[in-house]
Amino acid sequence: MNEITITRNNHLIDPTLSIWGWEISVYLFLGGLVAGMMILSGYFLYRERHKQFITSCTVVPLIGIVLLSVGMFALFLDLEHKLYTWRMYTTFQPTSPMSWGAWILLLVYPAMFAMLLIKVPGFIPKKFTLLFKWSEYINNNKRVLQSIGIANMVVGSGLGIYTGVLLSSYGARPLWNSSILGILFLVSGLSTASALVHMIAKDKEESRLLARADNLFILFELLILGLFIINLLSSTQAHINAVKIILTGPYAAGFWVFVVGLGLVVPLLIQSLAVSHRIKHTAVAPILVIVGGLLLRFVIVNAGLLSHWTKVIGLE
């Protein structure tokens, strides 16, 4: 028997760490989603398929800018010393993933803006002639076009991996203590982005291609999730306890039912049937994927906050 009492009773820390609420999960989810979107659209642009994959390369960056701004606003909401937010931009801290993230976010916007210039959105008044001139320049210049594509893929990958590395860098929380988390969040971002585009693309082929891509991403994500779990299970007792929080502990239902079941396996089945033309494409599968992606962040963030080196919470 081991009986531990702690007199500390600090807000957000006791009885269990609860420093980050929904804001951070939403921020990480949107960050991953936008990252996936950037990689997809960047890839199509790089392959000069932007004329065909018109949604991916014109609508998606616009949505991306909006979603990322929502994400950043969520992050801002979470800051406790809001007046001092600007302090993130008076310094660059190379050892701090959050500092990297702050600066990467600054690169994301120009990259997506550049992408937008391929076809200036309709709502921009014609009097902004400069924008139209740039657009023309880009469209006439293959190297520039491809560079924008590459930039979006690179920055997008950075963003996607960052959302995972942000967590995995915290050695204090055993559940996050896996380098696989970066890849997991990146792939999840790609999968949710594909689902989104698949859902909204007007072009049949674009939509179908992304459904097929999504199936691949989901398969891949399942594989990585498996690796993530095995990786922790084969580590120290603290890591085993940590991963038990999602396998059998308080977050097991959320993890198995919503993240794995409804978020990955079910949509994979539906989409596989749809791709092989046995059923029609509907919004059901992509919505499940997107919600699943969001819940993945919630489960990993919250269960991670519960995980601890010495305290075994919810598993007694």
Binding site: R8, L12, W20, E80, K82, Y84, T85, S169, Y170
Partner: peptide, 26 residues
Amino acid sequence: HDKCSGCKACMAACPYDARFIHPDGY
């Protein structure tokens, strides 16, 4: 105190749960 944004990264990073957010935000 005057450089801190209250992002709580340090709280997540501390295995001893030694930090807290002061009511003034830092």
